[in-house]
C-alpha cells in the first residue's frame, strides 16, 4: 500500500520544497511550504469561467488528465513492494497512460481557439514526443541489466550489489529527473514564472481553465513530481536495506528533488526555445549511454 503514500507525500512536499528553496536563495520571505495546497483549495471552492469558443473537450479534459495521472501513480513500486497495479511490462502501460494525459492536455488547449494556447500545445506535443524514447530506452537498459520485466522486479533486483546496475541506476535517476522537468515544464525547458505568454509552454495551455478544472490539472502536475521522484528513489535505493532506512532515504530523495529543482530555477535561466530540442534529445542520448553500459555488463 505504501508506495502510493510515497507518491502522495512527493506531491505534497516537493512543490513546497521548490518554493522554499527559491525564496531562501533569493533572500525573500516567500510563500510557505504548503501554499500550493492552499491555492488548490481556493480553486476548488470557486465557480467556473470558460471560453465561449471551447466546448466539451475542455470540460472533460481535466478529469481525464487527473484520472490518468492518478492511475499511473498506482504503478509505482517501493522497497520491493509492488504498486497497487503490477504485471509484466507494466512500464509500457505507465508510459502510455501518461501519454493519454498529455493527449488530453493538448486538445484541451486547442479547444479554446487561442493562438497562444495553440502555441503551447504545439510545444507540449513536440517535447512530449521527444521525451518518449528516452523513457523506453532507459527502462529497456535497466531491464537488460537486471533481466526482469516489471518496475518492482527491476528495482528490487538491485540488492545483489552490482556496480554496473548501480551506475546505470544513478544515470537513470538523472534521466528521470530530466523527464520530470520536461513533463512538468520547469526550468530549463520552460519557466513557469514567466509573465510573457510567448515563451510559455505549460502555463499557456491552461490559460482558459479555471476553478476546479485548473485545480485538477495542478493536482495532476503535483502528482507527477511524486511519481517521478518515487521512481528515482526506487531505482537508486538498494532493496536490501532495512525498511525504515529505505523510507528515510526515499524521503531524502523527495526532499532532494524539490531542493534540486529549486536551486536549478534560482540559478539557471530558461533555454532558448529552439535549444530545447537539443536538451531533450540529450536525455535520450544519456539513455543510450545507459544502454551501452548495460551491454558492457552483459559480457
Amino acid at each position: 500500500m505504501y508506495p502510493i503514500l510515497l507518491v502522495i507525500a512527493g506531491a505534497i512536499f516537493i512543490p513546497g520544497f521548490i518554493a522554499r528553496t527559491r525564496s531562501i536563495s533569493a533572500g525573500r520571505k516567500g510563500p510557505g511550504m504548503f501554499q500550493h495546497l492552499y491555492n488548490v483549495r481556493l480553486l476548488l471552492r470557486k465557480g467556473n469561467v470558460f471560453s465561449n469558443t471551447s466546448g466539451a473537450v475542455q470540460q472533460v479534459a481535466p478529469s481525464v488528465v487527473l484520472a490518468s495521472v492518478l492511475l499511473s501513480a498506482f504503478f509505482i513500486p517501493f522497497a520491493g513492494k509492488p504498486g497497487l497495479l503490477s504485471f509484466s511490462y507494466d512500464f509500457v502501460f505507465f508510459a502510455c497512460i501518461l501519454g493519454l494525459s498529455r493527449f488530453w492536455m493538448i486538445i484541451a488547449a486547442l479547444d479554446a481557439g487561442s493562438s497562444f494556447e495553440g502555441m503551447g500545445a504545439s510545444r507540449e506535443a513536440l517535447y512530449g514526443m521527444l521525451a518518449e524514447p528516452a523513457f523506453f530506452l532507459l527502462v529497456g537498459a535497466l531491464a537488460l541489466i537486471t533481466g526482469h520485466d516489471s518496475f518492482v522486479s527491476i528495482f528490487s533486483s538491485g540488492d545483489t550489489f552490482n556496480l554496473g546496475y548501480y551506475f546505470a541506476a544513478l544515470l537513470g535517476a538523472y534521466i528521470l529527473f530530466n523527464i520530470m522537468l520536461v513533463e512538468n515544464s520547469r526550468i530549463p525547458v520552460d519557466d513557469p514564472r514567466t509573465h510573457l505568454e510567448l515563451t510559455m509552454i505549460h502555463e499557456v495551455m491552461v490559460l482558459d481553465l479555471s476553478g476546479i478544472d485548473l485545480a485538477m490539472v495542478q493536482i495532476a502536475s503535483f502528482l507527477k513530481y511524486g511519481i517521478f521522484s518515487s521512481l528515482m528513489a526506487g531505482s537508486i535505493i538498494p532493496a536490501n536495506w532495512q525498511l525504515p532506512v529505505q523510507i528515510a532515504a526515499a524521503f531524502g530523495i523527495l526532499a532532494f528533488t524539490g531542493i534540486a529543482v529549486g536551486i536549478l530555477e534560482s540559478f539557471k535561466a530558461r533555454n532558448r526555445l529552439n535549444k530545447n530540442f537539443q536538451y531533450i534529445l540529450t536525455i535520450s542520448a544519456i539513455a543510450l549511454l545507459v544502454l551501452i553500459l548495460a551491454l558492457l555488463t552483459l559480457q
Binding site: 508510459a95 502510455c96 501519454g99 498529455r102 493527449f103 493538448i106 486538445i107 486547442l110 479547444d111 500545445a121 506535443a125 513536440l126 512530449g128 514526443m129 521527444l130 521525451a131 518518449e132 524514447p133 523513457f135 523506453f136 530506452l137 529497456g140 535520450s284
Partner: peptide, 20 residues
C-alpha cells in the same frame, strides 16, 4: 523499442493536430 515509442509520440502529435 525506441522507434516504436517515437512513432507513438509522433502519432499522438499528429492526431492532436488533426483532431484539434
Amino acid at each position: 523499442i525506441a522507434g516504436l515509442a517515437l512513432t507513438g509520440g509522433l502519432a499522438a502529435f499528429c492526431f492532436t493536430k488533426a483532431f484539434g
